[in-house]
Simulated scan of single mutants.
Amino acid sequence: MIRMFGELIGDVNPRHMTAHHGEPPVVHGLYLASTVSMFTSDLDILGRRFTMDFLSPAHAGDDIEVTVTVTDVRNAGPIGDVINAQMHYRNQDAVLLAQGEFTAVVRPFPNGQRREQP
């Protein structure tokens, strides 16, 4: 999967493609960041802001736990609700790999009802 992602985005740096100095390939930061969409795929959501700090590399074969915590929800009228959330990415050894925040608009259903928040 790492190789296919690298080819898709044009980042075929050898550190992502093959083992280096006895360590497995390093996961692309953008690939890691994109996993947050798994938490929002059931919502009609429009991203507004996304920041992420990469603290330690994730490697091929790592088990990654992503924690998303909604920190604020406010009504934005007819466009929906604006949510702010924090993300934390840890590997199987509980090492913090990355952390960040995002802001997004969760759009209401066509009939105007609000969607259940994540």
Rank of each mutant, 00 (worst) to 15 (best):
D53K: 10
A94H: 11
E7D: 13
M4Y: 09
L55Y: 00
I64D: 06
H88A: 14
T67F: 00
T35P: 00
L8K: 01
F5C: 06
R3Y: 06
A19E: 12
H20E: 10
I2F: 05
F39T: 05
S34W: 00
E101C: 08
V66W: 00
D81M: 05
E65N: 08
A94Y: 04
Q86H: 04
V105Q: 02
Q92S: 06
H21V: 09
A19M: 05
D42T: 11
T40N: 03
A19S: 15
L46F: 03
G47T: 09
H88G: 05
M17S: 08
N91F: 09
R115Y: 06
P118T: 12
F39P: 01
N13M: 01
Q92N: 01
M4C: 10
F109K: 10
G100C: 10
N91W: 10
H28C: 08
V82E: 07
D81G: 01
Y89T: 02
D72Y: 02
R74E: 14
V82C: 03
M87Y: 04
Q117S: 08
V27L: 14
V36I: 13
M1V: 11
G22T: 07
D63N: 03
I83W: 00
N91I: 10
G77S: 01
M52S: 02
D42N: 11
S37G: 09
G112H: 05
P110A: 14
V27W: 07
P25C: 02
T71P: 00
P14Y: 02
G100Y: 09
M52Y: 03
D63M: 13
Q92T: 02
P78K: 12
D93C: 06
R3I: 14
G61T: 03
E65Q: 12
G80V: 09
V36Q: 01
G100H: 04
G80D: 11
T18F: 08
M52F: 02
H20N: 11
V105C: 11
D11F: 10
H16T: 14
L46K: 07
H59P: 02
L8Y: 04
H28N: 10
V105E: 08
M87Q: 07
P110N: 14
T51P: 08
S34C: 01
L30A: 13
I9L: 13
M1Q: 10
I64R: 03
G80R: 02
D93L: 13
D53R: 14
S37N: 08
N75R: 15
N13Y: 02
L46P: 01
T69L: 11
S56F: 08
H59A: 02
N75F: 15
F54C: 00
M52G: 03
G61R: 00
V106N: 03
T40E: 10
P57C: 11
H20W: 13
F50Q: 08
V95Q: 12
G77I: 05
H16C: 14
R107A: 07
M38W: 01
I64P: 02
T69P: 05
E116Y: 06
T51V: 08
G61N: 05
